[in-house]
Design a protein around this nucleic acid. Sequence first.
DNA 1: CATCAAAACGGATGCTGCCTCCGTATGCAT
DNA 2: ATGCATACGGAGGCAGCATCCGTTTTGATG
Lengths: 197, 197
Amino acid sequence: MSAGEQRGRKPRADVQRNRAALLETAQRHFLRHGVGTSLEAVAKEAGVGPGTLYRHFPTREALLAAVLQTRSDELVARQADIDRLADPAEALERWLRAMEEYFSAFSGLPDPLMAAARAQEPDNPLTIPCHILISATDQYVRAAQLAGRVRASVRGHDLFLAACSVAWIKGTGTEEESLDRLRTLIASGYREPDTQA
Amino acid sequence: MSAGEQRGRKPRADVQRNRAALLETAQRHFLRHGVGTSLEAVAKEAGVGPGTLYRHFPTREALLAAVLQTRSDELVARQADIDRLADPAEALERWLRAMEEYFSAFSGLPDPLMAAARAQEPDNPLTIPCHILISATDQYVRAAQLAGRVRASVRGHDLFLAACSVAWIKGTGTEEESLDRLRTLIASGYREPDTQA
DNA sequence: CATCAAAACGGATGCTGCCTCCGTATGCAT
DNA sequence: ATGCATACGGAGGCAGCATCCGTTTTGATG
């Protein structure tokens, strides 16, 4: 073993090419047909055989998680903006909307997400991201509670579920107006009633 | 045509037998495996061919609607009890829980339900039941609003969506404790804040 | 540059489930 | 008992999943 050698031989070029093509194609298909889209079709359009797809991504969730990585990064980026806000209540609100949009990235996404959030399946590639989101939500909730803007009984996990629900309903094709009514209802549910006046 | 004859010849015996067997078996399979269960398996276990199943119930939704009929009747029965309550706020609450239980009858039920509720697909056999439920919810909401117990901005449709959401989350295997927290949150969202004290 | 072995490819394959079509069987009326 | 409308049921075509293995590609080595 020569010094400076990093982990065996150099990764093959075709591996990276195929992985990139698969991710790109998968994203398009998830966008157009939802998370239940045909993986065979994805492989074919990416110009690889089914075997190659399954070698790169052993399960649908693995592919989904990889495609979602980009969007996770965007979410983290937004977090920086949100953290800059002075009002913790507004920060929470914005964060919830950002999460909801993330959940709505593809139709049908909330289902595998909930499955991953629930479980102690450490091998589910979506589990970690979910728990990160729940923790983050809890942070925002606590901050808003310290400012007396959110009821003390509320937990981050509750609002994670709420955001997931709204995303799920959105995915079923409900009109935006109904969604707004529901969001308002939920907001009334977690906000501390005004003590003034 | 002799008098007293009703609508052509008497319905065949095997038709009714098969229909009953299919409904019974389907209910068991929906309970055990959710609404996505294999219809072939249902047919086989009911002792009929796939063709027979599809002749009786052309789509999965049709079978689902037929199986759900029993439970719809139970819901109507409960309505009688609920209507007897003096407190309209409590009536609304009970009604929401009854609906939620109905939505949770089988895992995965909320999805086809939402699809039916949204659409102007008059041929979807679940559409009518859904709209009935929405109207009923609106009644309870209005009554509670007249008593000043529910915010004026709330619509029956909103709470229908909320109940459906909770049922959906329940179906993903979330613990009962989390569900209760969410129900509480939603209740805080639609209830008129106490003006007393 | 030629050679080699590891690594990756990809498609044939077996499986399950959906839904339809049509030759056959069944049961009601006469 | 007979006839005919009605219903049956399974074979068959299709699509998608996931795997396995013979073949090809690729980077390393001298």
